[in-house]
Design a protein around this nucleic acid. Structure first.
Length: 987
RNA sequence: GCCGGUGUGGCGAAAUGGCAGACGCACAGGACUUAAAAUCCUGGGACCUUAAAAAGUCGUGCCGGUUCGAGUCCGGCCACCGGCACCA
């Protein structure tokens, strides 16, 4: 049966093949891992009721905070691909499972759910090829994934299982979309607000003013009502504020995939899925206004417990930069060009200006002499894909427009160029170029021989390096004149800190100021003069939210065209949900490039003449809120019940009205570290979701928070990325390399307990680490040692003989007997010490997610217990509790055997209270103290544990070995670190 | 280029500023066995000595610093991995 995986020629270490299914069935039948919601009836015979009481989750107890504390441990749910599970999946899942079991033992009410991120392109592509409905493919794949995951023995509450493709689920995805559609981000209240307030403000209904009279934004909208005369104008104004809106904008179109993609889904000019080429194309698309949340998404990172690298990735993605917008008058025209700069202090050094080729004023300002060159350049740039545009970035290109702008600080006429190194999509699509102090501008100026003027004085060190021949002559004074030929003196732009020079006019002087001071002074001046203002820019773009696909959530939107006028969109009501996709036989986009849904004419055209939106939502939609649906997975009336949400997502602080919820460390029930946190207590998953999923989900959560549907501003309090598991050759696992390890094979050969334990023993969870099948054998042998510590080996021989005949499996296991050397006797101090050292280490390591060292502590215990003649039942029993989170099947089986022999333990251990260690038992009577002479180890001495410093010092000085090194010298100083070390200084 | 992470035996790794290498893998020797497998026991960073040991010297990517004492803290490099990348 295992010919294709001939790793262990030897006999099976222990009958995991019988034990593991046995306990998985037991847990299923007992519903051991069911998590109970507030108000839920806990069956009296359920182990949770036995530990906490059948009424423990009554609404009264939850409200009075007498219910068990919650702990929410979440895995990133998988996309159920046809390829089945990968060894990377069980890594994160095992880590969370261990924590879930540990927290249950500590008395928490643990929520540990699993589900399926089931919308997605592969099922649709398969449908295009074969005509098989994606739902069927998806269901089959889910079945495979579920079977594989269940065979790993994770303690999920399967009663909360969800798939994003279930109508009962995506009904609520559509519902949340309606909330986005029907909200705007209020700049005064700084949060998402019902669009009806804005509608009221624009509809001249003074009686409604009560709701918003303290809001200057709404008052202003109301007072300017004259600008929105007609319905259409008012509608378009409102649509301009919605968090979900339609725009005709250049988007990434992927021909092969037949759909548009979000910025985030385009990598190096190719689609992230499939690596197909993408092109910019103007199309009418749905967008979500995530940019309104840029600041909150950035600042709230400080309130959550994520790794620095992950936070940094999100910060970079959001890309906040502070600076100023400055208006430059165009010479001879009435138009102004606004630029964004982070270095307003260098305004005096702006010697030319560059517009993006797509800038709307380009054609207007171009002179007739330059018209041909400019239009040729624009065409060339438009032809280039973004990939080419970045690839060719080494060499700057550009064309002079023939026009000039006036530098507002010194009245100079500076040439206006266009160049593709300026992006239309960032800032204002135009820059002031300061070649002396910006690398890119420097390069461009070099190439086209434009003027360069230094306005920040570099330090001498820099001059030595970058103007080696001339630096000595470049005294600070000499910078008061313009250097037309600075390129010949300097080697590069100076972009660092320095003092301003060359920067004064009749009204203002920056000379001598440091960069930060100069920035402030010039910006203040610009603001006073009305020439510019402080601005913050973000790299974050609005989220392109529509796809031309079949296998996604349809939008709950219809389009109306009254009297042949321009079409406008309208939301369906909540009662119309869910909007089901039509059934199709052909899943391809239409010949005209419309989404596949457009093929279903009967579905698209409604009786009242309106038509349905035919785009669908991207795959991210379902994963943006799945962690909320788990809380109340079957609720037909709400996406999640408020009280239930509040129990699981807040750390005991109720806040449904907007105030900030802070992390709270709670009292110590049982002396454990039992702090719970706002939101998901622990979220584990791969780094591949560092920006996309985690940013989108935070965004949706914040909108739901603003609208009062959830009680925390952040969804995931603590987040850990598990490291990638590489192949045995330390390369990324891939089919082409042939180094892929299939968990099914490992399972068959070693069992799931060994797989789980190995994946945790490989190294720190978040590290990248190579697979080693030999390493699996190692932990497998360890589990065998544990087994043999408990069972009678002679009975095992009988078992093995019986196994070859066709005895029923359950009876087979009964042939194995407990080792007679385990007895109900008092433990020796040494035995207690071994146990309690293990309890201490495992407990502390679990709190810090150090699974590898916790396992090593359990190995140390077994190595020692192996030498014991008789093994005290109480010690062995407690050890099983420590082992249980890691190797739950083996632990349950041995626990049950202790139960049947000694009768003093409950039949199942999942809800048994986690053992506490007794520090008094760990105290040594005699301790070893290293003795150093001049910092070098020379001896190790034994002293009584309670010896004082003087006694330790005396013992150290008496050391013969140490004396050898002191001989002939005088001890000048003695350092005694109590209970740690002595250092004798004798130079 | 910028940001983040990581460099420790043959390998995966461990070490609140205090005995570097716990635990495991691989390896070597031994016990058991007709034999092998499995199991159990023992050994092990390098160098120098030695019959063997003891003793000694060196040793956590490189260079320097702080300290009685540095894998750990500070400064400067190098290499590898991940992310971003003409974002003004």
């Amino acid at each position: 049966m295992a010919q294709d995986f001939p790793l262990m020629a030897g006999r099976r270490q222990y009958p995991f093949h019988l034990i593991e299914p046995k306990w998985q069935n037991f847990w299923d039948q007992q519903q051991t891992f069911r998590a109970f919601n507030p108000g839920a009836e806990v069956p009296a015979n359920h182990p949770f009721a036995i530990r906490h009481g059948a009424d423990s989750m009554s609404k009264e107890k939850v409200a009075g905070r007498q219910a068990p504390r919650k702990f929410y441990i979440l895995d990133m749910f998988p996309y159920p691909s046809g390829a089945g599970l990968h060894v990377g999946h069980p890594e994160g899942y095992t880590a969370t499972d261990i924590l879930a079991r540990y927290k249950r033992a500590q008395g928490f009410n643990v929520l540990h759910p699993m589900g399926w991120d089931a919308f997605g392109l592969p099922a649709e592509q398969y449908a295009v090829k074969t005509g098989q409905h994606p739902r069927k493919t998806t269901e089959e794949n889910i079945a495979t994934f579920k079977r594989q995951i269940k065979s790993l023995g994770f303690s999920y509450d399967w009663s909360r299982e969800i798939a994003t493709t279930d109508t009962d689920y995506f009904k609520w995805t559509q519902w949340i979309f309606l909330k986005l559609y029907n909200s705007y981000f209020d700049p005064h209240w700084n949060k998402a607000t019902s669009i009806s307030l804005l509608q009221d403000a624009l509809s001249q209904q003074p009686k409604l003013k009560e709701q918003w009279k303290d809001n200057p934004f709404l008052v202003c909208m109301h007072d300017n009502i004259g600008r929105f005369g007609g319905d259409a104008a008012r509608r378009s104004c409102i649509d301009g504020w919605r968090l979900a809106f339609v725009t005709e904008a250049p988007v990434w179109w992927c021909e092969q995939l037949g759909t548009v993609l979000a910025n985030e889904e385009v990598v190096d000019g190719k689609s992230e899925v499939g690596g197909f080429p993408v092109v910019r194309k103007p199309m009418r698309q749905w967008m979500l206004r995530i940019t309104a949340y840029a600041e909150k998404l950035l600042t709230d990172l400080d309130t959550i417990d994520w790794t620095d690298s992950l936070k940094e990735m999100q910060r970079n993605w959001i890309g906040r930069s502070e600076g100023a917008e400055v208006d430059f008058q165009i010479a001879g025209l009435s138009e102004k060009i606004r630029v964004f700069t982070t270095r307003p202090d260098t305004l005096f050094g702006a010697t030319y200006m560059v517009l993006a080729p797509e800038h709307k004023l380009v054609d207007q300002i171009t002179t007739s002499e330059q018209r041909e060159a400019v239009s040729k350049y624009k065409t060339d740039v438009a032809k280039k894909s973004d990939l080419e545009r970045t690839e060719l970035a080494k060499e700057k290109t550009g064309v002079f427009t023939g026009a000039f702008a006036i530098n507002p600080v010194n009245g100079e006429k500076i040439p206006i160029w266009i160049a593709d190194y300026v992006l239309a999509s960032y800032g204002t699509g135009a820059i002031m170029a300061v070649p002396a102090h910006d690398e890119r501008d420097w390069e461009f100026a070099q190439k086209f021989d434009l003027r360069i003027r230094a306005v920040v004085m570099p330090p001498v060190d820099w001059l030595k390096k970058n103007a080696p021949e001339n630096w000595a002559h470049l005294k600070p004074d000499s910078f008061t004149v313009e250097f037309a030929k600075i390129p010949k003196i300097f080697k590069s732009a100076f972009t660092e800190e320095g003092h301003a020079i060359n920067s004064k006019n009749a009204e203002i002087s920056l000379d001598g100021l440091k960069v930060a001071e100069a920035k402030k002074k010039i910006t203040d001046w610009l603001e006073v003069k009305g020439l510019g203002k402080r601005t913050i820019n973000y790299k974050l773009r609005d989220w392109l939210f529509s796809r031309q696909r079949y296998w996604g959530e349809p939008f709950p939107i219809v389009w109306k065209t009254p009297g042949g006028g321009p079409p406008y969109h309208e939301a369906l009501s909540e009662n119309d949900l869910p909007v089901l996709p039509p059934s199709l036989t052909d899943y391809k986009p239409t010949a005209t490039g419309e989404p596949p849904l457009a093929r279903a004419k009967d579905w698209v055209n409604l009786p009242d003449g309106s038509t349905r939106e035919t785009n669908t939502m991207p795959q991210w939609a379902g994963s943006c809120w799945y962690y909320l649906r788990y809380l109340d997975a079957k609720n037909p009336a709400a996406f999640v019940d408020r009280e239930i949400e509040s129990y699981w997502m807040s750390s005991g602080v109720k806040s449904l009205n907007g105030e900030i919820v802070t992390s709270e460390t709670n009292s110590t029930i049982q002396g454990f570290n039992d702090s719970t946190h706002p939101g998901v207590d622990l979220y584990v998953g791969g780094t591949e979701h560092a920006v996309l999923h985690l940013l989108y989900a935070r965004f949706w959560h914040k909108v739901l928070f603003d609208l009062g549907y959830v009680s925390t501003p952040e969804p995931f309090f603590k987040l850990v990325n598990q490291g990638l598991i590489l192949g045995e050759d330390s390369q990324k696992m891939s089919k082409s390399r042939g180094n892929v390890v299939n968990p099914d094979d490992v399972l068959r050969e070693f069992g799931t307990d060994a797989l789980r334990l190995y994946e945790m023993f490989m190294g720190p969870l978040e590290m990248v680490k190579p697979w080693s099948t030999k390493g699996v054998e190692g932990v497998y042998r360890f589990l065998g040692r544990v087994w043999r510590l408990f069972v009678d080996e002679k009975s095992e021989t009988a078992f093995e003989q019986a196994e070859t005949t066709a005895t029923a499996k359950d009876e087979l296991l009964d042939l194995i007997l407990l080792d007679g050397a385990i007895a109900d006797i008092a433990a020796t101090p040494a035995q207690l010490k071994a146990l309690h050292a293990c309890i201490k280490k495992v407990t502390e390591d679990l709190d810090a997610l150090r699974f590898n060292t916790a396992i090593s502590a359990m190995m140390v215990f077994v190595n020692e217990a192996n030498n014991w003649q008789t093994k005290p039942f109480t010690v062995m029993k407690t050890y099983l509790q420590l082992l249980a989170p890691f190797a739950p099947h083996l632990a349950e089986e041995l626990w049950a055997r202790l139960h049947s022999t000694f009768g003093k333990v409950p039949p199942s251990l999942t809800y048994e209270p986690w053992p506490r260690f007794d520090a008094a038992l760990l105290v040594e009577s005699e301790i070893e103290i290293p003795v150093q002479v001049n910092g070098k180890l020379r001896d190790v001495i034994k002293v009584p544990a309670d010896a004082d410093n003087a006694a330790i010092e005396a013992a150290a000085k008496a050391s013969e070995k140490a004396q050898l090194f002191i001989a002939g010298k005088t001890i000048k100083k003695v350092i005694v670190v109590p209970k740690r070390l002595v250092n004798l200084i004798a130079p």
